[in-house]
Design a protein around this nucleic acid. Structure first.
Lengths: 336, 336
DNA sequence: CTGAAAGCGCTAACAT
DNA sequence: ATGTTAGCGCTTTCAG
């Protein structure tokens, strides 16, 4: 293995000089620096991660805790993960993948063993068992989502309240007077996931503000559940002209059901989706959507974490990513 | 931080004894062992990963290289990833997540820096640029998929040849005499991904063996492409009664198209899918499928890797995971 | 601007 | 069956 001593010898300097060239923690003459850099690439030197971590108490690795559970939309998880890895690499960090089956102990283990310097925890529940562990081990963390008591934590999430409101405003602006919200399965609400409740409350305050008649329906992702929900919705509310769907798995069945019912989109009924951008673009007609910016959330989480690692202070405790509307072909003015 | 010296002092033994209790590399009296173990848990001791890696040249971390590209079915990727993490943890290893955008350099970096001991590389192409790097740095590796020249490598994959044959046999056993294969987009073939070609050849030799008339069609995942492909298929082959689909994104559109054409499944046409088990179960009717065992492949990859790490020899160079047929409601005898 | 040297916490000979 | 100790490769004082 090529060590820092090999590089030092090859460049005719001391090991510490090589170390300082690498870290930039003290000034080096231009001449020395370039000689060292040449030696580094000539020998193909890479510092030993363990030795570095031992000497500096910084592993340059962050952990990413993903839920194993698959009731979340998987492609979104994956987008998160890749954006976290990409962003971490830009800050010279690697990413250790943890699943939730080790539970809170997994966090304790990687923290105490100094395997990682910090952690990003996804899929936060209102009363999350991992939060106490985070406080206990003092591991710098960024949570994606908000627990019931976020005091002392750094959290980032999409602004679900604003996202739901944006959907309502879009439909109201087009002239719709009666709309419905097709949400996640009721199990998601039951689990105590904050986002579902925030979305609903954003929807409800927006419809109140706009004076629009509205209905909220949770919906299971199966084809038949979607069909039943939609049919009952139109039976109960014949004047319904606008739908907001916040349920990835329900998107395709919803469109198919509407087609089956002879209700054309957007001539008879408008549809706005809160879903990943690629899903919105894949279906026909292309959906007007308020896309979930997974990539941006992942990147922001990494940036917040790096902020905590470097400055410790001045990192905002709560970050809400603003939604934006992506126009598609699924919304129009309601029929006269 | 709690160190091994703290534990040693607390238990009244030497540091090396603590180390040996942990590693089991020499025999310890029952008395000493239990005293040490009590101290360990009393103090909440976890060995420092960096120190351990430095002293033993074993990081107990493996890298998992995932393709960033999203033209692969994402949930499968995720299943792989979680099964790799779970299996690795059972062998006391952690998993570092790498994406392909660092390319071969990423592998070189993690290997040279001793960040990881070994690597699992997914989505292997026939002429994969990462293979030379693996040979160059001598990093123990398991490839998921086969490159054109697998000499000296350890590869594991699903037996696509047998899987395609299994589909053909199932339809032929039911009495179908004319079938078609709806495959991945032609871009996948063009990219030099071995599995697409192996599947096709498995299909073709099976139909020859069974004396069944057959057609092969690549297919883009868009709804309209699927519709066109299927329509043309029935125009060209009016006697067609069996379909094999190996294209996750095409499954739902295919069923919808058949419904639109008034061809009932399985009364008029039988459908067998090579796809994840959950997808097969979600659609209506529930598909007869030869499911891709992502979990098993991931687990097996880890086991092979651990074998290489421990024994270096005796690890089989090629492992093919046998397919099995999962009966559903989408296949039956052809109409009389 | 650069060197020398003391550890960081652990493992694995080498002792006994 | 257990203790002693010399590193593993790097960072970071402390000196100059």
């Amino acid at each position: 293995m090529v060590t820092i001593a090999d590089v030092a010898k090859h460049a005719g300097v001391s090991p510490s000089t090589v170390s300082y060239v690498l870290s930039g923690k003290r000034s080096i003459s231009e001449q020395t620096r370039s000689r060292v850099e040449e030696s580094i690439s000539a020998l193909g030197y890479h510092p030993h991660a363990g030795a570095r971590s031992l000497a500096s108490s910084r592993a340059n690795v962050i952990a990413l805790v993903l839920p194993l559970r698959t009731d979340m939309h998987v492609p979104i998880l994956m987008q998160f993960a890749t954006s976290v890895v990409t962003a971490a690499r830009e800050h010279d960090h690697d990413v250790l993948l943890l699943t939730n089956d080790e539970g809170p102990d997994g966090l304790r283990r990687v923290a105490r063993s100094a395997l990682v310097d910090a952690v990003i925890v996804m899929d936060i529940e209102l009363n999350d068992s991992r939060v106490p562990v985070l406080r206990e081990v003092g591991l710098p963390a960024v949570l994606i989502g908000f627990p019931a008591d976020p005091a002392g934590l750094t959290c980032v999430d999409w602004d679900f309240v604003a996202a739901a409101a944006r959907c309502v405003d879009h439909l109201a602006d087009l002239g719709h007077r009666e709309i419905a919200f097709i949400g996640p399965p009721s199990a998601v609400f039951a689990r105590g996931t904050g986002f579902a409740q925030r979305t609903t409350s954003g929807f409800e305050s927006a419809v109140a503000r706009r004076g629009v008649r509205a209905t909220v329906r949770p919906c299971d992702p199966s084809h038949s559940a979607v069909r039943d929900t939609v049919k009952r919705l139109f039976d109960d509310h014949p004047a319904l002209t606008g739908l907001i769907v916040h349920n990835e798995a329900a998107v395709a069945p919803l469109l198919e059901t509407l087609r089956g019912l002879g209700r054309h989109v957007p001539q008879h009924v408008s549809v706005v989706a809160m879903c990943p951008e690629d899903l919105a673009g894949q279906v026909s007609p292309r959906l007007t959507a308020v896309p979930i910016p997974a990539e941006e959330i992942g990147r922001r989480a990494v940036e917040l974490l790096m902020g905590k690692l470097e400055r410790a202070a001045g990192v905002p405790p709560a970050t809400l990513i603003a939604p934006h509307l992506l126009p598609g072909e699924s919304t129009a003015a309601p029929p006269a």
